[in-house]
Amino acid sequence: MELFYSRLGVWIGVLFTFAIFSFLYKDNPFYKVAEQIFIGLSAAFWVVITIYDTLIPNLFKPLSENFGGNIILLIPAFLGVLMLIRIIPKLEWLSRFPIALLIGTTAGISFLRYLKSDVLNQLTATMLNPFAASDWISMIGEILLIVGTICGVLYFYFSKKHEGALGTSAKIGIYFLMVSFGAAFGYTVMGRISLLIGRLQFLMGDWLNLIAH
């Protein structure tokens, strides 16, 4: 019986894979059905996950086990209810309070983290002495890193017209940016092809048994 359900799962996966791939030829009812089922399943999955992994362990269980000790949890519960009140047009304005609180705390927490990780640590990482590098390849790499960072930042300096030394630096900066966009595109292509490989390994391995899986 277990084998039957396992094979059934594979066949359902195969049918949905073909239904989604059929869009590459042109839009069609099979694709639409697969897309709608996927959306419906995803929404249902998130509702279940929210109830079982967020609401029950963080709210209902602590309150049912020790209501007096966890009474403070009623505050976030109340704010959560206010969020849901958005669906009543007349009381929609009440949802602004939890949203304001959420944005404020998130911004406060994230500000320090991003400042340290994305500004201070990243800046420190570019403060290198390239001439102390162990080999000439590393030295060239570190020089490119320093030049690329400075010129890239200068490209985004808009308080002075980009001409003369600033113009040249900004132009060098945009070349570095172009290279980074190219690298990002290359990685994206690699990622998308990896997904296709995964699907074909499933079709040719799990379904057709043509390759080892």
Binding site: T124, A125, S180, A183, A184, V189, G191, R192
Partner: peptide, 23 residues
């Protein structure tokens, strides 16, 4: 693969990431 270019700068002298596997 899509996320890798955004994370590569964290593999730096500060050791924010010790290596990275991309795709």
């Amino acid at each position: 693969g899509v996320s890798a270019p955004a994370m590569l700068p964290y593999v730096n002298e500060q050791g924010q990431l010790t290596g990275l596997l991309g795709a």
